[in-house]
């Protein structure tokens, strides 16, 4: 129904927000229930991230930092799961830390899901360790860079002194780290790691971040401070494809398509209404 004095163009420019919201539900839920399986092409930055882990020499020491909280679960959880699969399947050692206090929850969710002892025959404390969280953001990063044992004194799972674990005999400071993987959503994140671990110790860095943060990491990638970047869920789906393990990100790929096309349609409809009205005014 078009009210008196109101044209179709006015209508087109003023659709009720709740109709828009309903449309979002309508386009996102169906492809999650029955995925279409559209092909996903792999971008060079995803290949760089994959290759950086793939080419780590046996015995390399990796630190994975959870620089995000529950707010980014939808986008970073699938990427974190895929990264853990990749690390557990390689002959490398790694430690999990968190600079966001909700980070350990996500890390624990992943470990409970993967069950690395049985799935990958990786021994806790020898091949990998979950160190937990340190407060202070950038201060914690600086402290960890200098002295990991003194900053996180006990591990997260068994609450035993970290000095008792064999893996920690090879991991005392940032100098012992071959690569840092930051899973991040903001501050503290890549900016702070670049200041506290790349600059003083030249620890190579990989970043997997929410899409919003990706543009800010681009200068570090170009400058060689960051070896690889996974920007958002789409890149997560690409990474899962490279690993041959289609999981949550792949399941979300079709919904990413439909939701993006809907936003594009919103932009086009809004602009059609705007230009039609402007033309009428000019006439």
């Amino acid at each position: 129904m078009v009210a008196e004095g109101e044209t179709i163009w006015d209508k087109l420019e003023n659709i009720d927000r709740r109709i828009l919201y309903l449309l979002i539900w309508i386009v996102v839920l169906p492809p999650l229930i029955s995925p279409i399986g559209l092909p996903i092409s792999i971008s060079p930055s995803t290949v760089a991230y994959y290759e950086a882990i793939e080419k780590l020499p046996p015995g390399s020491m990796v630190v994975v930092s959870f620089d995000f909280g529950l707010s980014a679960l939808g986008e970073l959880y699938p990427i974190a799961v895929a990264t853990f699969h990749h690390l557990f399947s390689r002959p490398v050692k790694f430690a999990i830390i968190a600079t966001w206090n909700e980070g350990p929850i996500v890390a624990k969710m992943i470990i409970d899901k993967l069950n690395p002892e049985q799935t990958y025959h990786k021994v806790y404390g020898e091949d990998w360790i979950f160190l937990g969280w340190a407060p202070g953001g950038e201060q914690a990063m600086a402290a960890l860079g200098r002295d990991i044992w003194g900053t996180i004194t006990k591990d997260y799972i068994y609450k035993k002194p970290v000095s008792q674990y064999p893996i920690m005999q090879h991991l005392k400071s940032a100098k012992d780290v071959d690569i840092l993987i930051s899973l991040e959503t903001g501050t503290p994140g890549a900016d702070e790691w670049v200041r506290q671990w790349w600059e003083p110790y030249h620890v190579p860095m990989l970043v997997a971040c929410i899409g919003v943060m990706a543009p800010t990491v681009a200068p570090y990638v170009q400058a060689g401070q960051c070896l690889g970047l996974l920007p958002g869920l789409r890149a997560g789906a690409e990474y899962e494809k490279l690993l041959g393990r289609p999981e949550l990100a792949t399941a979300a790929a079709d919904a990413i398509s439909t939701s993006h096309i809907l936003v594009l349609a919103f932009v086009i409809i809004g602009n059609i209404g705007y230009f039609a009205k402007r033309r009428r005014r000019m006439e």
Partner: peptide, 8 residues
């Protein structure tokens, strides 16, 4: 670019 349907 980000929507798989776009690049497909």
């Amino acid at each position: 670019k980000n929507a798989p349907i776009g690049t497909a």
